[in-house]
Amino acid sequence: MSEALAAVETAGTDLSVPAVSGARQFWRRLRAQRAALVAAVVVALLVLVALAAPLLTALEGQDPTTYHPTLIDSARGGVPIGSFGGVGADHWLGVEPQTGRDMFARLVYGARVSLGVSLGATLVQVALGVAMGVAAGLGNRWVDLVLSRVTDIFISMPLMIMALALLAIVPGSFPRPVLVALIIALVSGWATTAKMVRAQTLTLKNLDYVAASRLSGWSTWRTAVRELLPGLAAPVITYAALLIPSNISVEAALSFLGVGVKPPTPSWGQMLTSADVWYQAAPQYLLLPALALFVTVVAMTVFGDGVRVALDPRAASRLRIGTGRKREARVDTAVPSGEQRKEDRP
């Protein structure tokens, strides 16, 4: 608190300078947070695994869809034969109960679905959200009123319910993962993004430098592209980074309910659907997808938070989750001082 008092006095206007979103500064601030760094490594590994899924399964010599009836005990309802659900040299993480499909292959391909669907959904959400938000922020009174009302309605719709309902009426011929991604995107996320972008646009629109650009003779359109959009980048990226883990959870939940990604396409949520029946006979069938989901969402969340801190250290210092506070503070105070106290003595 008297930090504030001190800051006003010692640094003059320096601390109120908006964060410059230089890439170098971003990396430096991101590197300063240990938790975010670890999370970034985990996220990178997950992406790598998802991309290299065919390679990895080829290495194991399995694929995610082949049934192995010989590896399950049909007399006992389909429990995998062997210890830990059939773990061995051929099946690194064992096989699925009932079907005998290879667990490792299904997990690895599940990462593809999980990350692919959530990333796709996030892209749609961000594109739609930015378009609607900017239009509402820059448009006249009526455009703003209509768009804001539509946005509010989508915000107040219960996401899971709408997604479920929509999945009921869309014809089954549509490629399922794309459909799931689209539906997740359309019923959620974009509306809150739009609301945030609108607020941000309204703030930016009234900044003096935007007025100055117009006075320079630039058109409104050019001013919006040159002066407004770059200002939106940081908050939108931050928001997107936090939408990804939430989308992963929603996809998993829909698949868990049996209305998301349909078999034979593997998905972590779907694998958990009948896991409670098998947890005693094949605990890895429950634990592996649950762990995969947990690690992915935690890593994405922590990473997203790190991105937020790196992009806007001042907002983050108020809203942080408690990662790497002290170092961050040092990085920030290092920036002003020196250069800036050269006073006006032309």
């Binding site: 868990f256 958990l272 409670d276 649950a290 935690v298």
Partner: peptide, 16 residues
């Protein structure tokens, strides 16, 4: 943080 990141049905499943 762990709580925020765990999907509802995973918590439920484990609790059950």
């Amino acid at each position: 943080l762990a709580g925020v990141a765990t999907p509802v049905f995973v918590i439920g499943l484990i609790l059950m």
